[in-house]
Amino acid sequence: MQADMPGLLILDPPQSGEINMAVDEALLKNAISDGPVVMRIYQWDRPTLSLGHFQRLEDRDSNPLIAKLPWVRRKTGGGAIVHDLELTYSIVIPNRIDQPTKGHSESLYRAIHLSLVENLRSLGWDAKLSETCTCSMSASREPEPFLCFLRRSPVDILVNGDKMVGSAQRRSATGLLQHGSFLLRRSQSTPELCGLLDATADLISVGQENLRRKNSFDVSSAVDGWIDFLVQALQAGLRKNLRVDWRLGTLGDLCKIAWERTGSRPEQR
């Protein structure tokens, strides 16, 4: 395994879909080969539909609950997601000169999702990998469902049979972007999908208590606790592929790193 890479964890406030996707696109476009791995955890300031890179906008029109939502297109593939009562993560891993691009990294998906499964199971949820696929290469050749959370790929995370976490990637000349969505609660826009906390009250109570005990900090709200859960699980999963030395930071820190690399710090008084 390579020496430790620097890592920057960014916990962003809820923002519009346009801003969220623009930030992730910029993180990938500007990834520096010896720069940090970036993990960003965020939410959306209003329920928003994100389309997979190749999805047709008109395919949302048959669902009136979804058709009225603001929408944005992701750079990553896969199906559409309604970002409402959920957490979104993005991870950008720069291409290294000593680690040539080798196509997609299913091992990264799998390591991260297995870590999430293990952590969910440790809290009492019946979590597992899907190990099934609805992709159009399957024998039926039926078109895949429009919504990501109605599709199945082998490394999607199921809890009690329902998909709770889905991820998608984009490769570029500069690095790899992995997006993921973690459903917490059922959205009014997608009543057919349940979130993790829509399980039985007893299970939620046990899971939340286990989460509080596992973490040293005070879980002041369910979302704060789950953000910390997600960060820990993602970092543990990444550790199976990469050694990353994480620190908490901001997008401003990334700008400073870029200035140092390029010597293009803005003039100031």
Binding site: F54, T76, G77, G103, M137, S167
Partner: peptide, 13 residues
């Protein structure tokens, strides 16, 4: 061009 595998998009050069 671009190619999409199961949920991953890659450019072709």
């Amino acid at each position: 061009g671009e190619v999409e595998s199961v949920k991953a998009v890659s450019p072709m050069y």
